[in-house]
């Protein structure tokens, strides 16, 4: 088990390194010069010496590998540098400012999705081909095909503009969370319900479930104690895997509902060529994904000894 943990940790570190390298390279390839953009493309009269001074101050005049090493070293120490555009504001402050919004949204959406999809998936799997099963299948099929940005816009039209139950934009009151959370949750819900249903059906056909039934255990005990507990395993993997997708949904949702979270920070910084913010965000999020995947893998290995032996 210890060997497994160590090898997974090393793999994770390697992946984060590769991601930081890739992000850095991509950022240097971006068209446009952040210094020029900041100075308003020739609107302000400025001498070449002054431009050079700014470049030197930000380290933009040094060779790329040096720039990368400095940046990576700083990142490891928790110093993400200063924003190039919002002069002098540390990137860390910008990220900390936006993080609670994105965090709250996603935790609520995730909780809502799990709360509804897991029981729904189990019941649909147990009562196969029942009206409830059909309803869940139809619901999750629709949920997967629904583009979240359009669902969000339709939500605004119906519930904010026509019915006036919730505000169309912003988070001034708790009602502002309702639409974004529901929209974010809908996609997860569809995926989780499908997986949970499939896993339930799969485990219910296993021999040990039949044995448990033959032993005379009640249906409830067989389902909850024997089947569902094992069916949760593949679901955990999918949930860990879906974490990487969370941010994609957040980018779009925060844009639509004008929420000051990480997704909006990312898009705004990208439009403004704010190198520091974009690359810090990507690396941080990737590290988060790697970390969560590691946790799910370890949890899996802990629960299911077969995985430890296999590798």
């Amino acid at each position: 088990m210890l060997n497994y943990i160590i090898s997974r940790l090393l793999q994770g570190a390697l992946v984060i390194f590769l991601i930081s390298l890739a992000t850095f390279v991509i950022m240097r390839m971006l068209p446009g010069d952040p210094v020029m953009l900041l100075l308003g493309e020739g609107e302000i009269q400025i001498t070449q010496e002054q431009i050079d001074a700014i470049r030197a101050k930000w380290g933009l005049d040094r060779p790329y590998y040096e720039q990368y090493l400095v940046w990576a070293g700083n990142m490891l120490r928790g110093d993400f540098g200063d924003s190039l555009i919002r002069r002098g504001v540390p990137v860390r402050d910008m990220i900390f400012e936006a993080m609670p919004v994105t965090g709250r949204l996603n935790v609520m959406a995730f909780a809502l999705a799990l709360l509804i999809s897991l029981p729904a998936g189990i019941v649909a799997g147990v009562k196969r081909n029942s009206p409830f099963d059909y309803a869940t299948t139809i619901g999750s099929t629709i949920g997967v095909a629904l583009p979240n940005f359009w669902f969000g816009l339709m939500g605004i039209i119906v519930f904010a503009l026509m019915l006036r139950w919730v505000p169309p934009f912003g988070l001034k009151t708790w009602q502002g969370y309702v639409l974004p959370v529901v929209v974010l949750a809908s996609e997860q819900m569809a995926v989780f319900t499908r997986v949970m249903r499939g896993a339930t059906i799969e485990t219910l056909s296993q021999d040990y479930v039949r044995t448990a039934t033959a032993k005379g255990l009640s249906r409830q005990v067989v389902i909850l104690r024997h089947a569902v507990r094992n069916a949760l395993l593949p679901v955990v993997t999918v949930i860990g895997f879906r974490i990487a997708f969370l941010f994609s949904g957040t980018i779009v949702i925060e844009q639509i509902f004008a929420l000051p979270g990480l997704g909006r920070l990312f898009v705004d910084s990208l439009y403004r060529l704010d190198y520091q913010v974009v690359q810090s965000l990507v690396v941080l999020l990737a590290a988060l994904v790697v970390f969560i995947n590691l946790l799910t893998d370890l949890a899996y290995a802990f629960v299911d000894p077969r995985i430890r032996i296999e590798r």
Partner: peptide, 18 residues
């Protein structure tokens, strides 16, 4: 692994602007 850990839409937006 690296590609799977990238936030997909963020990567797409980055590459598209490059």
């Amino acid at each position: 692994d690296t590609l799977m850990a990238f936030p997909l839409l963020a990567l797409l937006l980055l590459l598209a602007s490059v």
